Amino acid sequence: MTASFLEYFFLVPSLAISLFFVVPLSGVLVRFRANYTPRGLSLDTEGSAVPHTGPVVSSYFSMFRRVLKIEGFQGLYKGLMPTFITALTVSLAILTFMDSPGHRHNSYRAPTAGILGTFLYSILMMLISLPSAIITYRAITTPHRLPYFGLMKSLRVLLTPTERRKPWIIYLTPGLLASQCLHVAYVTLVLAPLHRLLVPLDSESGPGTVAYPEISPIKLSIYFVVVIVSAAILTPLEVMSTRLAIQRNQASAEYNSVSQEVDGDAEEVAELRTEAEPYTGLVDCAKTIINEEGFRALYRAWWITLLGGLVSALA
């Protein structure tokens, strides 16, 4: 049975309200994790040591204040349109094809098909959503002010000529698929089974409800430890995924398609690593971040990943 007219009617307003709060928070997170802050000295064209002169942003909230100071309230909503389009498309698909009377008033869950089935389903959804994620991350971190309704102009800024001619090449971004697959694999093959084992749901609860049987405090404590360890594993993958997603493919150091096609009108809030020395893979990304910025850079906003794990443990 498909959704009612009222559910379709209130879909856009409800999305607008939720994105009003979500987009600024997620945008600042992307900027903070993408911000390049080398801890050492660089060399100029003559080989002399030059100290780093870019912005030093040490926390999530420092990045939030910096965005407000430089770009104002509007800067917090970079990436709004691709986020809205993605959320609207997914919501329409769920309402049209996956909604049923027994699941009303409850969030849609992936089909129950065992651990392997859930893993394959999650990989498929990741592959479908990856282009949208790349475009959203680049829209958030670009120094240019993109028009809300100028799709072609925005794509000329966010994608290189090579990526526009061969859109599938974004799947070949060095290390990006590896980081995404590792993230999905850990969540579906390790974290989710441990959740079902240590914090099981009541299989006899009624439709649209979530109930827990009597849970051992020891098991709950063990699962909280699992969530903490998971945050330590997943946060570096999320940081590297952000860095790799905004790394443009086959953009020549001598030809910057962004600067030649669109004039910038805002100071760059998040300093990005130069495309002249791109990350060549997931391992290279990790090593380079540690060597140039320190181990702590891999754990930027770790508490957000931890908080998400704790919330999902009780959801």
Rank of each mutant, 00 (worst) to 15 (best):
A232Q: 10
A232P: 01
A232M: 12
I233Y: 11
I233E: 09
L234R: 07
T235M: 07
T235E: 15
T235P: 04
P236S: 01
L237G: 07
E238F: 09
M240N: 03
S241H: 04
S241C: 09
R243Y: 09
R243H: 12
A245S: 15
A245V: 03
I246P: 01
Q247W: 00
R248D: 13
Q250V: 04
Q250S: 11
Q250E: 15
A251H: 10
A253F: 12
Y255A: 08
N256M: 05
S257W: 14
S257C: 11
V258R: 13
V258S: 14
S259W: 03
Q260C: 04
V262R: 12
D263W: 00
A266I: 00
A266T: 03
E267C: 03
E267I: 07
V269A: 01
A270T: 03
R273Y: 05
T274E: 13
T274Y: 07
T274Q: 13
T274W: 07
E275A: 13
E277K: 12
Y279E: 04
T280M: 07
T280A: 09
T280K: 14
G281R: 06
L282D: 02
L282E: 06
L282C: 07
D284L: 03
C285K: 06
A286E: 03
T288N: 02
T288Y: 01
I289R: 01
I290R: 08
N291A: 15
G294H: 09
F295W: 14
